[in-house]
């Protein structure tokens, strides 16, 4: 199969004080298996909206177009069904869950997904072994598992926690929504390595970013420029370098 994700003519809007405001205005995008794609674009161009729509956030209404994931209608699935199918969204602002223990949360999620994928559930020991290995790889302190999900975490800790979840849930498509924002160089490297470790013919990633740095680590196969709710240009890694040097102005003019 040459298409893991195929988005065609996708339009989506959000309710803004009673009137729908269109944010995605015909997105076309194909991600084949095993590839890393990057989306770049100015603020407000619809990058985060695209990630939310793909993960099934209910605030957005899809008004036209389609998204097929592994040949199935992604837009018809519930958020948890998408997760089970293999979509993972690393949130730009990971949500805090006061009172929910991090380890317990992770185990519940892992086993829910495994159940849905007809894989045997992990028992406490098996889970602990797997999660320890993962936290070690990500240079995370053990006590992060004992704390409540994202509560009182620093920005870097939250992002690492997202990568930990990604590692444990074994997605086929990870959408990283500005996972690199607010990270120092070391943290960025750790996050990038976390993604690199997952790279295989069965793992693709859609990386939303403003920065060249993360892309340097990941070496994307394709780079897309998004503006005003559409992909206006696609190319190889050189496109990212060009944006880094020249900014978006030239592309926007071209698109207009």
């Amino acid at each position: 199969m040459s298409e893991l994700l195929k988005i065609s003519g996708l339009h989506a809007s959000i309710d803004a004080d009673g009137t729908p405001k269109e944010i995605l205005r015909g997105v076309d995008l194909v991600i084949p298996p095993g590839e890393v794609h990057a989306i770049m674009g100015p603020n407000g161009c619809g990058k985060s909206t695209l990630s939310y729509v793909l993960a099934g956030r209910e605030d957005y209404e899809v008004t036209a177009g389609s998204a097929l994931f592994k040949g199935e209608d992604l837009l018809a699935m519930e958020p948890e069904e998408r997760a089970a199918a293999g979509i993972f969204l690393a949130f730009q602002s990971p949500v805090e869950l006061p009172g929910v223990n991090n380890a317990n949360f992770l185990r519940t999620a892992v086993n829910a997904v495994r159940r849905a994928r007809n894989a045997p559930e992990l028992d406490a020991v098996g889970f602990l072994k797997a999660v320890r290995a993962a936290t070690k790889n990500l240079s995370m302190a053990d006590d992060m598992l004992k704390r409540n999900v994202n509560v009182g975490f620093s920005g870097g800790e939250k992002k690492r926690n997202e990568v930990l979840q990604m590692t444990m849930l074994q997605p086929t498509l990870a959408i990283l929504d500005e996972t690199d924002s607010g990270l120092d160089v070391d943290a960025l490297r750790i996050v990038a390595e976390g993604v690199q470790n997952l790279r295989s013919p069965d793992f693709s990633a859609l990386v939303i970013t403003h920065h060249q740095k993360l892309l340097d680590y990941l070496g994307p196969d394709r780079v897309h420029v998004m503006a005003k709710g559409r992909i206006i240009r696609s190319g190889g890694p050189e496109l990212a370098k060009q944006i880094n040097e020249e900014g978006y102005a030239a592309f926007l003019k071209e698109a207009a």
Binding site: A55, G56, P79, A109, A112
Partner: peptide, 26 residues
């Protein structure tokens, strides 16, 4: 809603996600 979506996006079914949040709250 944000918390609920976060849990569901990690594959936890709606009912279970709600119960987790209720329990955590108490």
């Amino acid at each position: 809603d944000d918390q609920l979506f976060y849990l569901r996006s990690r594959g936890i079914p709606d009912d279970q996600a709600r119960q987790m949040l209720v329990e955590a709250f108490l």
